[in-house]
Simulated assay, not measured.
Amino acid sequence: MPSPIPVTRLLPKDLYPSVDIGTCSSPLAHHGATLQVPVQRLHGKVASRLWSSVIRWKELRSIQPVGSGGFGSVYKAEYFGETVALKKVKKCTKNRLASRQSFWAELNAAHLRHANIVRVIAATTCVPAEFGDESSIGTVLMEFVGSRNLQQIIDDQSEALGADRRLGYSADIAHGLHFLHSHLIVHLDIKPANVLVSSEDRCKIADFGSSVKLERGCEMSALSPRLSHVGGTYTHRPPELLKGEEVTPKADIFSFGITLWQLITREQPYTGDRQHVLYAVVAHNLRPCVRTHPVFQSEQGRRLTALLTRCWSGEGRCRPSARELLPHLEQLRAHT
Rank of each mutant, 00 (worst) to 15 (best):
E219S: 09
F103S: 00
R266F: 13
S182D: 06
N95P: 02
G132A: 12
N108E: 10
G244N: 11
R319I: 06
H335S: 13
S211Y: 00
E267P: 09
F144I: 01
I63N: 03
L161C: 06
G44E: 05
T259F: 03
N149H: 00
P238L: 07
F71H: 07
A115R: 15
R56D: 15
Q151E: 06
I190Q: 03
S170A: 15
G138Y: 06
E324M: 10
K91D: 10
L227T: 13
L184Y: 15
V282Q: 05
N149I: 01
K90E: 03
D252K: 06
S25Q: 15
I264P: 00
A334E: 10
M142T: 07
D14G: 00
I258D: 04
V230L: 04
S3F: 02
D156P: 08
T34R: 15
A129C: 08
E82Q: 13
L263Q: 07
S48V: 11
R333I: 02
A29Y: 14
H178I: 00
K91N: 12
T259E: 10
V295Q: 15
H335D: 08
K213H: 12
K88M: 05
I205Y: 01
M142G: 01
D201R: 11
C318S: 13
A129H: 11
R49G: 07
I258E: 07
G146W: 07
L329P: 00
K213R: 07
A251H: 03
Q300D: 11
Q152R: 03
E246Q: 14
G314M: 09
E246G: 08
S53V: 09
L10C: 05
G176Y: 02
Q268R: 14
G272R: 05
L307A: 09
G314V: 04
K76V: 03
S321Y: 06
L184Q: 14
R119Q: 13
P225Y: 00
R237Q: 15
V84L: 08
T83V: 09
A193K: 04
P294S: 10
W261H: 12
E78T: 07
A77S: 04
R303D: 01
P2S: 08
G132S: 14
L326H: 04
F71N: 04
R303N: 00
A110N: 10
C24T: 02
L184T: 08
C24K: 02
S62T: 08
G272Q: 06
L304I: 11
V7R: 08
A109K: 04
K250Q: 15
